[in-house]
Design a protein around this nucleic acid. Structure first.
Length: 495
RNA sequence: GGCGCCAUGGUGUAACUGGUUAACACGCCGCCCUCUCAAGGCGGAGAGUUCGGGUUCGAUCCCCGAUGGCGCUACCA
């Protein structure tokens, strides 16, 4: 049956027993979907358990990190609705901690100074078959080492002294017990010769300092984990629970990259994806509520943020990599757009309008009603600024293919203009009356109502695809319908 | 190459500690509806669980091996 869930709110936010997790992106690029999913899982875990979610920026690679990327990452996180309880902390401002930690390790004999230069190491690697560091500086005697360090001629890095024999293991919450022979682990660099820590040192120093209880991160870190475990042991610190999350791959099952199209979170925002759809989709990539709670959630796919928080547990995380499927994301998007109230959709649509430099000329009640009419067939928020422009202003274009398909009959324009006169003369203009007038007109002229309907649709909306014509007519309003039908002869025909 | 991890239809997942006609969703195909396109309703194709050995009365599930994929293999994170 698995372990019981904590009752929500049962723990004080910062009680000693409450979990502490973190998301630790490196600002060397935009937040990509894999990172977003890792952040999401950490956040869900924290919210589910009543723990703390900490944001830490790992910017110790000064060449590749930038402030703009930090802003982008924060923006992306806010977009998918992830808030953090502590931070953001910047590793670039915590250098003293790492240096002190490295010193501590040297003093306790778990680390040593290394005077080999990067160039020397590369040269040795190039010629030898042994890829690992040969430990030559580990064997320097203490006095010699001190002397070389103090003369300052050869800047020294600090390396971890990996134990000679035995193995290092940890119990992963997702993968179970994972074990590595120490002989396979290199004497890795903790502190670079310029005093900047490597990732291996800074994660451990920070994770201990920030009292993290769980480390939830990508499975690409499994191989790094023994290096970290060794440091915890050398430092006499308790191990956090490691939970490695399988990777997200592109459709060709290789690691997701630019080749696969959009890879940054913001790119999906720009594609007109609504954040909740994206979050829902991401949550189900590598995790599922399973059926351990009976069958209640087994066949469900749509989960609100609250649902996810309530349902999320580490044992729902799967072990195998997942392929990112744009079609499924698109489906989530349509589901969410359809389900949203138009009042909720409007601000998101306004963003699209602004980006497209489009100005609606309708009143707000009209706009809201029209959104309700259109949202069942929207695939993206973008549609409101492209396909659906004709509903919100006269600033739209006629789709050439639609014109060719439904408006190419030379008899049509004059018929539609005549129809416009009928509407103008009619005492009322409702969905029912509009339909009745059109059908009567078609019967009178002995033509198919469908021809008139399809032609009208293109004349009114510029598109071949739209909701039911008479709903469109009432949404547009009598005046606009008459005006556009009357102007049908001015619709540009292609060729 | 070495080390580690993973393996259920095209995709994401489900299948309580071995016993199911292997389920759901996306996608795909067809039909219905119909004024277009979606949606919706109905139906369908698609995996005998990568392959081969075991263990067992019985294996998607346990063990071994093979194959494939992915990850790590930096004074990047």
């Amino acid at each position: 049956m698995g372990e019981d869930r904590e009752e929500g709110g049962g723990l004080m936010p910062d009680s000693p027993s409450s979990p502490r997790v973190r998301f630790a992106p490196s600002p060397t690029g935009y937040l990509h979907v894999g990172g977003a999913r890792t952040a999401l899982f950490n956040w869900l875990f924290a919210r589910h358990t009543g723990g703390a979610f900490i944001l830490r920026i790992e910017d110790t690679d000064f060449e590749r990190s930038s402030e703009a990327m930090v802003d982008g990452i924060l923006e992306s996180m806010r977009w998918i609705g992830l808030d953090w309880d502590e931070g953001p902390f910047f590793q670039s401002q915590r250098l003293a901690l790492y240096q002190a930690t490295a010193q501590k390790l040297v003093q306790s004999g778990h680390a040593y100074y290394c005077f080999c230069t990067k160039e020397e190491l590369e040269a040795r690697r190039a010629q030898g078959t042994a890829a690992m560091y040969d430990r030559r500086c580990r064997n320097l005697d203490r006095a010699e080492s001190e002397k070389r360090r103090l003369d300052g001629k050869s800047p020294a890095a600090i390396r971890f002294a990996v134990p000679d024999g035995g193995s290092t293991a940890f119990d992963d919450a997702v993968f179970g017990r994972v074990e590595f022979a120490n002989a396979e682990i290199e004497d890795f660099v903790l502190l670079r010769s310029d005093g900047i820590p490597t990732y291996h040192l800074s994660v451990v120093a920070d994770d201990i300092d920030m009292r993290l209880t769980h480390v939830i991160r990508g499975a690409d870190h499994i191989s790094n984990t023994p290096k970290q475990v060794l440091q915890y042991q050398a430092l006499g610190a308790d191990l956090p629970v490691f939970a490695h999350v399988p990777l997200i791959l592109g459709p060709d099952k290789t690691r997701l990259s630019k080749r696969h199209g959009a890879t940054s979170v913001i790119a999906y925002k720009d594609l007109g994806i609504v954040p909740e759809a994206f979050r829902n989709f991401l949550a189900l990539l590598g995790w599922s509520p399973g059926s351990k709670q009976g069958s209640a959630h087994k066949d469900r796919e749509i989960f609100s943020s609250e649902d996810l928080v309530q349902l999320f547990t580490l044992d729902g995380i799967s072990k195998s990599n997942a392929v990112f499927d744009n079609d499924k994301l698109a489906w989530f998007n349509t589901e969410y757009i359809r389900a949203y109230a138009s009042e909720k959709l409007l601000p998101m649509i306004e963003v699209e309008w602004k980006a497209a430099e489009f100005q609606p000329t309708r009143s707000e009640p009209e706009i809201l009603a029209t959104i309700d009419l259109l949202k069942p067939r929207a695939r993206s928020l973008k549609d409101f600024a492209t396909l659906f422009r004709a509903y919100f202003s006269d600033d739209f274009e006629y789709d050439a293919a639609a014109v060719t398909k439904f408006l190419s009959d030379p008899a049509l324009p004059s018929l539609l203009q005549e129809l416009a006169h009928r509407y103008a003369a009619a005492p009322e203009f409702t969905e029912a009356s509009a339909e009745q007038i059109l059908r009567a007109f078609a019967a009178e002229k002995n033509i198919k109502a469908g021809a008139l309907i399809n032609g009208s649709r293109v004349a009114l909306t510029g598109q071949a695809v739209a909701p039911s014509l008479f709903a469109v007519m009432t949404a547009l309003g009598k005046d606009r319908v008459i005006q556009r039908l009357s102007a049908v002869d001015k619709v540009p025909t292609s060729g």
